[in-house]
Amino acid sequence: MSLKQRIQDDMKNAMREKNAQRLSAIRLLTAAMKQKEVDERVELTDEHIVAIIDKMLKQRRDSITQYEAAGRQDLADNEKFEMTVLQAYMPTQLSDVEIEAEVVSAIAQVGAAGPQDMGKLMGVLKPKLAGRADMTKVSQLVKVKLAG
Rank of each mutant, 00 (worst) to 15 (best):
A76M: 11
Q109D: 13
Q109P: 02
S24Q: 11
E47A: 14
V103L: 15
Q21T: 11
R16N: 08
K137L: 09
E40D: 07
E43G: 14
D77W: 00
D96H: 09
A101T: 14
N19F: 13
R61A: 12
A51F: 00
L28S: 15
A108I: 04
A133R: 07
A133C: 10
Q109A: 14
V85D: 06
V138I: 14
D77R: 02
A133K: 08
I49S: 06
I26T: 02
Y89T: 02
M90P: 02
L129R: 05
V97Q: 14
K58W: 00
R41E: 10
A113W: 00
T84Q: 15
A108R: 10
E40V: 00
K4Q: 12
L3R: 13
V85T: 09
S105T: 15
K55L: 13
V50D: 10
Q116V: 06
R132A: 08
L57A: 00
A69G: 12
K55E: 13
H48P: 05
E40G: 01
I49L: 06
L129V: 06
E17V: 07
K143G: 08
E79C: 01
Q87I: 08
R6E: 11
K80E: 14
T136A: 04
R61F: 05
I7M: 07
M33R: 03
G111Y: 09
R27V: 03
K145C: 05
A112V: 04
L3Q: 11
A51W: 00
A69E: 15
T65H: 10
H48F: 05
E82S: 11
L44N: 07
E82C: 12
V42M: 04
A69P: 06
D74N: 08
N78E: 15
L94N: 09
K137Y: 08
T30L: 15
Q35C: 02
Q59P: 00
K80M: 13
I64Y: 03
V142P: 09
L125G: 08
L141W: 03
A133S: 10
N13I: 10
E82W: 08
G71E: 03
E100M: 14
S139M: 10
N13S: 11
Q21N: 10
P127R: 06
G131I: 03
V50E: 11
Q116T: 09
E68F: 06
A25G: 15
L125E: 08
